[in-house]
Simulated assay, not measured.
Amino acid sequence: MTAMTAMTDYLQAVFDMLGPGEERYADPAAWLRLEEELGRTLPADYKQIVDAYAPVQINGHLTLSHPNSDWWNLGEEIRSISEVWADSKWESCITGADDDPRVFCQLPQLSFGTTEGLIPIAATDQGAAVFVAPWVHEFPYGVVVQGSEGDWVGHPMTFAEWLYRYLIGEEMAGWDSKAFYPGPVWLEYPPAGPGQPTHEAYGPDRGM
């Protein structure tokens, strides 16, 4: 199976699991502006998922933001979160080459929000941070996670595959991070502006 086929399969599997997206903020120009600022493109499957659903909180834990929304704006979050990470002691929990993002991302030094570094693309309310990196274990545009315990993990896969595995309850957001909820996936959409309500939706029955 080719990498492209695998990506397409997992992307469709995510769409099947989450149901029809609302595409409230989909706009190619917003992505172009953000990518120009970052000096790099973001993975196509990630952008398709974000365009379909974000800003959204999935199953009460995982948050996705959008570059074209005022609330939960992806560009603003990338900038602010990257500044926090740049000033953090991110290396404090590294024990060796296996859990060192500089090693599995093939980077001489780690940076955040930069052309060659880690871009924060999602987060959980349990304390995990999700990034995309140019290379993860020699896989292009792979996913890097620092879990709530400070542990670093590199996932050599597309974001769509990572999200699919996360939603079926695999340990994808750091040590002891399994969070499987049987039944339809719960989607919580934040207000589009002041005075507007939060609203909820559910994906189709998953047979789980």
Rank of each mutant, 00 (worst) to 15 (best):
M1W: 09
M1R: 11
A3M: 08
Y10K: 11
V14R: 07
V14H: 02
D16C: 08
D16T: 11
M17D: 02
G21C: 01
R24D: 14
A26L: 03
A26N: 07
A30S: 15
A30W: 07
W31F: 02
W31P: 03
W31H: 02
L32F: 05
E35S: 01
G39T: 10
R40D: 02
P43E: 13
A44D: 15
D45L: 07
Y46Q: 00
K47L: 10
I49T: 00
V50Q: 05
Y53E: 13
A54W: 08
A54C: 03
A54M: 07
P55S: 04
P55G: 05
Q57C: 04
G60Y: 12
G60N: 06
T63F: 01
L64G: 09
S65V: 07
H66Q: 01
H66R: 00
P67N: 04
W71E: 10
W72Q: 10
L74P: 00
G75Q: 12
R79Q: 12
R79F: 08
S80F: 05
A86L: 12
A86N: 04
D87H: 10
D87R: 14
S88E: 07
K89L: 14
C93R: 14
C93W: 11
G96I: 02
A97S: 13
D99C: 03
D100H: 07
V103P: 00
L110W: 12
S111R: 04
G113D: 02
T115A: 15
E116C: 07
E116T: 14
E116G: 11
G117L: 12
L118K: 02
I119W: 03
I119H: 00
P120W: 09
I121Q: 03
A122N: 02
T124M: 05
T124D: 15
D125Q: 02
D125V: 13
D125F: 08
V130L: 12
V130S: 00
F131Q: 04
F131C: 09
V132I: 15
A133S: 15
A133T: 09
W135E: 14
V136K: 00
H137Y: 08
V143D: 02
E149S: 12
W152S: 05
V153D: 00
V153T: 12
G154S: 10
P156A: 15
P156E: 09
P156D: 09
M157F: 07
F159I: 09
Y166T: 00
A173S: 10
S177Q: 10
K178C: 15
A179S: 07
F180C: 06
P182V: 03
G183I: 14
E188C: 10
Y189N: 04
P190Q: 08
P190S: 08
P191N: 09
P191Q: 06
A192Q: 12
A192R: 11
A192P: 00
G193K: 07
P194E: 13
P194L: 14
P194S: 11
P194F: 13
P197I: 08
T198C: 13
H199A: 01
Y202S: 04
P204R: 08
P204Q: 13
R206W: 05
R206T: 13
G207K: 06
G207M: 06
